[in-house]
């Protein structure tokens, strides 16, 4: 669905569901995931339907992901960090399994 105009110059390594992803320093988690071909970020707690980044400016809250054990974070306003581990979310946040 997306491609990069050029390879990342300052590379940041992270994972999504254990899969290695190379991102560009300074970009958002959502941009890195889309550029890596990941389009389904979560399943909604209401109907379980898949969702992906929609507005990219922090307004729609459709790009919620679990980052390093903390869920319901907006991928489009969270900058990538070296070693970040991102997971998709299914249903609602489970407080008993949060590492935050």
């Amino acid at each position: 669905m997306f491609r990069r105009l050029s390879d990342p110059e300052k590379k940041v390594r992270m994972t999504f569901e254990g899969q290695d992803i190379t991102a560009q320093e300074g970009e958002s988690v959502a941009a890195a995931l889309l550029a890596a071909g990941i389009t389904h970020l979560r399943q909604t707690p209401v109907s379980g339907h898949p969702r992906a980044p929609y507005c990219m400016m922090g307004a729609c809250f459709d790009c919620l992901v679990n980052i390093d054990g903390v869920s319901n974070l907006q991928a489009c306003v969270t900058p990538v960090r070296e070693g970040m581990s991102v997971h998709s979310q299914v249903a609602e946040k489970d407080l008993l399994h949060e590492d935050g």
Partner: peptide, 22 residues
Amino acid sequence: TRPGVMTAGGVQILLKSSGVVP
């Protein structure tokens, strides 16, 4: 609401911030 639908502003932000294009 389906994946594969985005706003124009969202796509433009991908271009501006990351050089990522459809």
